[in-house]
């Protein structure tokens, strides 16, 4: 079977610093693949290149066997690639419902419609409410996004990503900055979609990663030093030395 996402010797430099230093990786359909790595390992830069926000210096990104290395972000979204951001990126002045409905609108019909209230389109709102229910945020639908808590913002990002009906979900540190309870909620949500949704999870939170991932890749200084099941990664001596260190005790 073709990999959903295939990364072939991707390189990206910022000046003298090789932030992505020859990364190759396959993500199979239905897989939940996690990438872990210490701060500054180049995780967000990798996600930016996969989502089309940044162009790599060399290498290729293949999606369902198709070369998308030079496709822009919107084009990739239309192919079914969704991304959530490490730093919450939502439309703060919009209501929660509008935020999600806009993502539905992006794939349902033309947005060059100048008449008719978008707020009153039942198809958009119904679909949006569905996604909000899925993440447990339906009762906040009418609130302005800026008034939600940080955890709720993360849930909302998730709903927005789901609303683009992705075939590949790129999640950039969804657990960053969440409290214990919020993390639990998010974890439950991730369990829900696991198996149904091909996901690349870039994460700092070890508990979440080891609880969720089918396979884990360890990224250190722009290189992947190991890929394997959670068990293999935990047992990998190189990974322990390079990264897990004392944190290992907690796992």
């Amino acid at each position: 079977m073709t990999a959903r996402l295939e990364i072939r010797s991707l390189h990206k430099r910022f000046g003298a610093l090789a932030v992505t230093d020859g990364i190759s990786l396959d993500i199979a359909p239905g897989e939940l693949h996690a990438i872990i790595g210490p701060n500054g390992a180049g995780k967000t830069t990798l996600v930016a290149q996969l989502s089309g926000q940044l162009a790599p210096d060399s290498g290729q990104v293949l999606y369902d066997g198709r070369d998308i290395t030079h496709m822009d972000m919107a084009g990739r979204v239309h192919l079914g690639m969704a991304r959530s951001f490490q730093i919450t990126t939502i439309l703060h002045g919009f209501t929660v419902l509008q935020n999600v409905a806009l993502a539905v609108q992006a794939r349902k019909g033309s947005s060059f419609r100048f008449f008719g209230r978008a707020d009153a389109e039942p198809a958009l709102n119904a679909a949006a409410i569905g996604y909000l229910r899925q993440v447990g945020l339906a009762e906040r639908a009418g609130d302005v996004a800026r008034n939600l808590s940080h955890g709720e913002h993360r849930q909302m990002e998730f709903a927005i990503a789901l609303a683009t009906a992705p075939r590949l979900l790129l999640l950039d540190e969804p657990f960053a900055g969440t409290g214990r309870q919020e993390a639990e909620q998010l974890l439950a949500l991730m369990r829900q979609i696991k198996g149904k949704q091909t996901t690349l999870l870039v994460e700092h939170d070890m508990n979440a990663v080891f609880a969720l991932a089918d396979r884990i890749s360890v990224l250190v200084y722009g290189r992947i030093i190991a890929t394997g099941t959670p068990g293999e990664i935990r047992a990998n001596a190189e990974v322990r030395a390079a990264y897990l260190g004392e944190e290992d005790a907690a796992c």
Binding site: V77, F85, L91, G93, F94, Q105, A106
Partner: peptide
Amino acid sequence: RVLAGTREDALRMQAIGF
């Protein structure tokens, strides 16, 4: 709504396909 979305956050708009 799309126009107002670009005012709020152009990056987010691209990330949902606009």
